[in-house]
């Protein structure tokens, strides 16, 4: 038991938080690739954005001890909100026209 705990020692502090952010990013990317529902894709993007925001906060705490990283995280939240608002409007319009949320139904424009 103690062997396991010491084996995971590197996960405390900076590296642990970075691992959380990286896995958030990967989970978001997987959602973007695998989801067919346009809202699902959008949620994946939100996860990726928040992973980046988390990274900024972590680095600002552990690496630079400056406030600028946390400000960037705030800006990421604002921009993600603006993007979500526009995205939901576009997806709503898509639903009205196609009666489906399936992004693979967007097949009018192709080679």
């Amino acid at each position: 038991m103690s062997g396991l705990a010491s084996g995971l020692d590197w996960l405390t502090g900076l590296h642990g938080y970075l691992a959380v952010a990286a896995s958030l990013f990967v989970l978001g990317a997987v959602a973007v690739i695998s989801r067919k529902n346009a809202i699902g894709v959008l949620l994946g993007v939100e996860l990726m954005l928040n992973a980046a925001g988390l990274n900024f906060v972590i680095f600002s705490k552990y690496r630079t001890a400056a406030i600028d990283g946390q400000i960037v995280a705030l800006f990421i939240i604002f921009i993600a909100a603006a993007e979500a608002a526009v995205a939901l409007a576009i997806i709503l319009r898509f639903y009205r026209l196609k009666h489906s949320m399936d992004a693979s139904e967007a097949n009018l424009l192709r080679d």
Binding site: G28, M48, A51, A52, G69, A87, I90, R93, L108, L109
Partner: peptide, 30 residues
């Protein structure tokens, strides 16, 4: 429908690309 589809495709690729880019920026910051 075509205009709407254009904006949906633009949105999905754009959102993903900018999310990847800001993650890259966070690594540069680190």
């Amino acid at each position: 429908a075509r205009s709407n589809e254009a904006s949906l495709k633009y949105l999905i690729f754009g959102a993903v690309a900018s999310a990847i880019m800001i993650y890259g920026f966070s690594l540069i910051y680190g």
